[in-house]
């Protein structure tokens, strides 16, 4: 009896989690016959699979996908590089100032994102010699119309540095010392000895970074509002809102959303084991 209740509860929550996604996939397949029926059909009489082709024909979907992939991969690679390098330095070297830098890494995480939107927007706009700016004549757009504006504010993740440091600390010093005696350079010790030891943690960081930045919305929208050629999937779909206002365009919007969601869900399912190892240690 108790077991029945337990699985009934889990099943109910699972249904509440899945149903909204199912509703989106069903909605994407509705055709004009369904939306203009009175009352409109919930289940399409004739599923319009062609909607997924229309998404690419009628919307700049290819461009958005390209931007999403390029921006997300660049940020992921850079975050992994900066987090592992800094985490290793904080974990495995003794030097004056380490204490202070570690406190900075902890403290920086306290500041909410909304504090940075305005100042960073203008810092990027006022970068000298970029986007029409002179050395002191700063009337241009700076880096705002470039990929750099989407990537630069995210090249370091404080939490990632902290996480990598926690894993590097567990590596025995003797291992690194031995390599040092063999005359290995410090970078080589980092790259070939230390990094492989924490490979699962590094992959986890990469996966989290990828998912987070694939889905990033507010910042990207803020800096690409007037640069459609730089918009990513979620931003592009959001800013084209007006195009989806008519009833029969709703299914197009739902299909576009499905395309924006599919890659991460796919990645998530494939790498599920690794993903959850991380959420449980984190």
């Amino acid at each position: 009896m108790r077991a029945v209740l337990k699985y009934a509860a889990l099943g109910l929550v699972a249904a509440l989690m899945l149903l909204p996604f199912a509703d989106m996939f069903v909605g994407a397949l509705r055709g004009p016959r369904d939306v203009f029926a009175n009352p409109p059909n919930y289940f399409p009489v004739e599923p319009q699979w062609s909607v997924y082709a229309r998404v690419f024909d009628e919307l700049p979907m290819g461009r958005w996908l390209f931007n999403s992939v390029v921006v997300t991969l660049t940020i992921t690679v850079l975050q992994v590089a900066t987090s592992t390098l800094a985490g290793f330095a904080l974990a495995k070297y003794d030097f004056g100032g380490r204490d202070a830098i570690f406190r900075l890494v902890i403290g920086a995480q306290m500041f909410p994102f909304f504090l940075f939107i305005i100042p960073i927007f203008f810092l990027l706009r006022y970068v000298p010699l970029a986007g029409g700016n002179g050395l002191t004549e700063l009337g241009g757009s700076g880096l705002l119309g470039t990929y750099a504006a989407l990537v630069l504010p995210f090249i370091v993740t404080w939490y990632g540095v902290f996480l990598m440091r926690q894993f590097f600390v567990t590596i025995p010093d003797d291992l690194l010392e031995a390599a040092r005696l063999d005359g290995a350079s410090e970078f080589r010790i980092f790259r070939s000895i230390a990094l492989p030891q924490i490979a699962p943690a590094v992959w986890t960081l990469a996966l989290f970074a990828f998912v987070y930045h694939w889905n990033e919305f507010i910042w990207t929208m803020t800096v690409t509002r007037s640069a459609p050629e730089l918009q990513t999937l979620p931003v592009g779909i959001f800013l084209l809102e007006d195009q989806f206002n008519t009833l029969d365009q709703k299914s197009l919007q739902q299909a576009a959303l499905a395309v924006s969601v599919a890659p991460v869900i796919f990645l998530f399912i494939v790498l599920q084991k690794r993903f959850h190892a991380a959420t449980e240690t984190g």
Partner: peptide, 25 residues
């Protein structure tokens, strides 16, 4: 593992999709 994957699904979905999915619902 299966329950976890299902419950975690919204977390990996972009917020525009979440917002619109619920607008439809």
């Amino acid at each position: 593992r299966v329950w976890r994957a299902i419950f975690y699904l919204p977390q990996v979905t972009n917020i525009v999709a979440i917002a619109y999915i619920w607008q439809f619902l």
